[in-house]
Design a protein around this nucleic acid. Structure first.
Length: 406
RNA sequence: GGGGAUGUGGCACAGCGGCAACUGCGGCGGACUGUAAAUCCGCUCCCUCUGGGUUCCCUGGUUCGAGUCCAGGCAUCCCCA
């Protein structure tokens, strides 16, 4: 294993807080692999780059020679983590949890090293808990302490409801740490209370308390809000390579270093150098962003995928070539003649998935966005000669929506 | 349990009884670019559209005409107990 100082350099890169650092140092100095815990409630089947931030951190631990336990919260999901919420989470059904857990693990393994990861389900030990044990656990916590945390405090102060079972969430999460004997637990920065609860409970059980490590919430592609599917500012881990590359190319310059830090596979030294280059203005943001996009595409789609995505990107957006993997539609299926022997183009655009409604299609035409074989149509050209839609014609709306007639 | 307020397009916020509905954000498209930023222009409910249809929590009512008035319902928020 690397010297403690070097390990710490990697560990602290891109983290929010480590409580307490001295204890972590002491644990590392023992020179044995630590047990690193990450608990996830599979609330959604699709992971994005934001979810991958703690996973990346886990991977760094693995590369340093430590072991990682990924806890699938099929027990805790029955409550729903109240962290950062202003209302009670709807509970998931067992089937949802089951299905989500499977895709979660699949996606997580793109980041983690499967050989150094053990995957466990906390329902295995949480569901069999009997009343005695539950009460014993709950007696270790007190209400005033739990009410101190910001999310509960706010809800309480604002007269928003807090269901009693939500208080139990940190208790169960803490118990997970006891069961697996965690040395360190990580989470997003809204998780700090739950992580500290684990410390308290472990201490109460006479164990060496875990270290709490938090990573920041990743900012979304818009550079403003946190990355989230509902904001539409995310890069999904299963997004197609070209898509992923394109989305990353659209980010603002000033979040490039942060994305390198939290999402890329570059070494800490390399990332530090990039930070420095951005700080003194010597960095070329455009080239850096291309490197970032390649790196992340490689990570999720295999080495070389980034380069291919970049070439496709250059062809499509720099040289305005027709992308080669566009959807094809049989002209016979999509092209309909009206009484005058003309084709109502908006219908064709809808059939080819280029427009959501005829109105949208008409607006796109009027706005000069729609092109046939690269030639823009004049405004109001809604009814066109079917000869313009012969087999082989490429339909385009804007730079991103394409279809080919066959 | 008592009292008060509010419910408008993805979000935010206007709207004297004549509105497909102000404005901002966001989004899309165009120009310019590095699918960055900044800036400028157009669009942003549906419909083969100088027109038609369906909208402003729900249900009824008043009216030639209701997002706007009335009644009841539902939801949310605030104050007091």
């Amino acid at each position: 294993m690397l010297p403690v100082e070097q390990q710490l350099k990697v560990i602290t890169s891109g983290t929010m807080q480590i409580v307490p650092v001295e204890e972590l140092k002491a644990k590392l100095e023992k020179g044995v692999p630590l047990n690193i815990k990450l608990g996830v409630d599979p609330t959604s089947p699709d992971l994005h780059l934001g979810h991958a931030v703690p996973l990346r951190k886990m991977r760094q631990f693995q590369d340093l020679g430590h072991n990682v336990t990924l806890i699938i919260g099929n027990g805790t999901a029955l409550i729903g983590d109240p962290s950062g919420r202003d209302s009670t989470r709807p509970p998931l059904t067992e089937e949802q949890v089951e299905a989500n857990a499977q895709t979660y693990v699949e996606q997580a393994m793109k980041v983690l090293d499967p050989d150094k990861t053990s995957i466990v389900y906390n329902g295995d030990w949480l569901k069999p808990l009997d009343l005695n044990k539950m009460l014993a656990l709950m007696s270790k916590f007190n209400v005033a302490r739990i009410l101190e945390r910001e999310d509960f405090h706010k809800r309480y102060a604002n007269n928003q409801s807090i269901a009693l079972h939500e208080f139990i969430y940190p208790v169960l999460q803490a118990y997970d740490s006891v069961v697996i004997g965690a040395d360190l637990e990580m989470g997003g920065n809204d998780q700090i209370f739950n992580l500290l609860a684990g410390r308290d409970l472990m201490r109460a059980e006479g164990m060496e308390p875990q270290i709490a490590l938090t990573v920041p919430l990743l900012v979304g592609l818009d550079g403003a809000k946190k990355m989230s599917k509902s904001y539409g500012n995310y890069v999904g881990l299963t997004d197609e390579p070209n898509d992923m590359y394109g989305k990353l190319m659209s980010i603002n310059d000033d979040i490039i270093p942060m994305y390198f830090r939290l999402c890329s596979t570059l070494s800490v030294d390399e990332i530090d150098a990039i930070d420095a280059a951005f700080a003194d203005g010597s960095a070329d943001p455009y080239l850096m962003k291309r490197e970032l996009a390649r790196n992340i595409v490689d990570l999720y789609h295999g080495a070389g995928a980034g380069k291919l995505a970049e070439e496709a990107f250059d062809a499509q957006f720099k040289r305005n070539e027709v992308p080669d993997d566009i959807a094809e539609y049989a002209a016979a299926d999509v092209v309909e003649l009206n009484d005058e022997g003309l084709v109502y183009l908006p219908k064709v655009l809808i059939a080819c998935g280029i427009a959501a409604s005829a109105g949208e299609a008409r607006r796109a035409i009027d706005g000069g966005a729609v092109k046939l074989d690269g030639a823009a149509l004049p405004a109001k050209s809604y009814n066109i000669d079917p000869a313009q839609l012969a087999s082989g014609t490429v339909l385009q709306s804007g730079k991103r929506k394409w279809a080919r007639l066959v």
